Amino acid sequence: MIAAMMTAANLGARLTGWGFVVFTIGSVCWVAIGLSSGQANLLASNAFLTLVNLVGIWRWLGRQATYEDGAETAKAKSHKASVPSLFTATGVAGMAVVDAKGKPLGRAVEALVECRSGTVSYVVVATGGVAGIREALRAVPREAVDFGCDKLALTLSPTAFEALPALDGGDWPAAAVPQPVTA
């Protein structure tokens, strides 16, 4: 159960990877029980699960952790160098979102990027609710978002933000409704 929570939470490569380590310990123990009790089905299914878990360890503690480390290193170096500061594109999801006065509004769920230009079209912002239940999602046009390294600041007034149409679960628009910037 602990391993399932660690992997389901998806709180980063290392926590997910350690969840697979816990899964592996469990599946190895079940392999031992299958061997000692002559239960071929238990042995076979947990031998396969051990293989799957080892792939999870390699994927999350090996490869993905290396990617996250590289991205974080580039981010940190950019803050100290005479180049524009960077943040990871995957870091947008979960970033705090504040209004123009710095008051917390919610969190970014996703940024939609135009294929041809590579520019952000809009950011989906979640407000209210608990653990995704009864939250409101809104598509905020790129021109109304100031990207910071640790948060996104909206240039919309709170009234203009609330006036944006709420998104319906998995039915997001092809483009956000342009809004006047009200800094």
Score class of each variant (00 low, 15 high):
Trp60Tyr: 15
Asp99Asn: 13
Ser82Ala: 15
Ala89Gly: 12
Gly56Pro: 00
Leu86Glu: 00
Ala81Asn: 08
Asn46Met: 05
Val109Gln: 10
Ser82Val: 11
Asn46Arg: 03
Glu68Ile: 04
Val55Gln: 11
Leu54Val: 14
Thr66Trp: 14
Ala71Asp: 04
Ser78Gln: 03
Ala93Pro: 04
Ser85Lys: 14
Tyr67Asn: 08
Val113Gln: 05
Gln64Ile: 00
Leu42Phe: 09
Asn41Ser: 15
Ala44Cys: 02
Leu86Ile: 00
Leu54Lys: 02
Arg59Asn: 12
Leu105Val: 09
Pro104Gln: 03
Pro84Lys: 07
Asn41Cys: 09
Arg59Thr: 12
Glu68Phe: 01
Ala111Gly: 12
Trp58Ile: 11
Ala71Asn: 03
Ala71Gln: 10
Lys77Val: 09
Lys77Thr: 08
Ala71Ser: 11
Val92Leu: 10
Ser78Glu: 04
Leu61Phe: 05
Leu86Ala: 06
Thr50Lys: 06
Leu61Trp: 05
Thr90Asn: 13
Leu49Ile: 11
Ser82Leu: 13
Trp60Thr: 01
Leu112Pro: 00
Pro84His: 04
Trp58Glu: 09
Glu110Lys: 09
Arg107Pro: 05
Glu114Gln: 11
Ile57Ser: 03
Leu43Ile: 01
Ser85Ala: 15
Trp58Ser: 09
Ser45Ile: 15
Gly102Glu: 05
Ala96Thr: 14
Gly91Arg: 06
Gly102Asn: 07
Leu105Gln: 06
Thr50Val: 09
Trp60Ser: 04
Val55Ser: 10
Leu112Ser: 09
Gly91Asn: 06
Thr66His: 14
Val55Thr: 11
Gly70Ile: 02
Ala74Met: 14
Ala40Glu: 10
Leu42Met: 15
Gln39Val: 07
Thr66Gln: 15
Leu51Met: 13
Lys101Trp: 10
Leu43Lys: 03
Lys80Gly: 05
Leu51Phe: 14
Ala100Asp: 11
Gln64Met: 08
Glu68Tyr: 02
Val97Phe: 00
Met95Asn: 04
His79Ile: 09
Asn41Glu: 15
Ala65Met: 02
Ser85Gln: 13
His79Thr: 14
Val92Arg: 01
Lys77Phe: 06
Phe87Val: 08
Leu49Met: 13
Ala71Phe: 04
Thr73Gln: 14
Lys77Met: 11
Arg107Asp: 08
Ala44Leu: 13
Ser45Val: 14
Phe48Glu: 05
Val109Phe: 07
Lys103Glu: 14
Ala108Trp: 03
Gly106Cys: 04
Trp60Gly: 01
Glu68His: 02
Thr88Asp: 07
Gly91Asp: 08
Ser82Pro: 08
Asp99Glu: 02
Trp58Val: 12
Ile57Pro: 00
Gly94Arg: 00
Glu72Ser: 13
Asn41Asp: 15
Asn53Phe: 12
Val92Ser: 00
Ala65Phe: 01
Glu68Asp: 10
Glu110Val: 05
Ala47Cys: 08
Ser82Tyr: 11
Ala76Glu: 12
Gly91Trp: 07
Gln39Met: 12
Arg63Ile: 10
Ser85Trp: 11
Ala96Asn: 08
Glu114Trp: 05
Gly91Glu: 06
Phe87Thr: 08
Arg107Val: 13
Asp69Asn: 09
Leu54Met: 13
Arg107Thr: 13
Arg63Lys: 12
Phe87Ile: 07
Gln64Leu: 07
Gly70Tyr: 06
Ala40Cys: 06
Val55Tyr: 15
Ala74Cys: 10
Gln64Pro: 02
Glu110Arg: 11
Val98Lys: 04
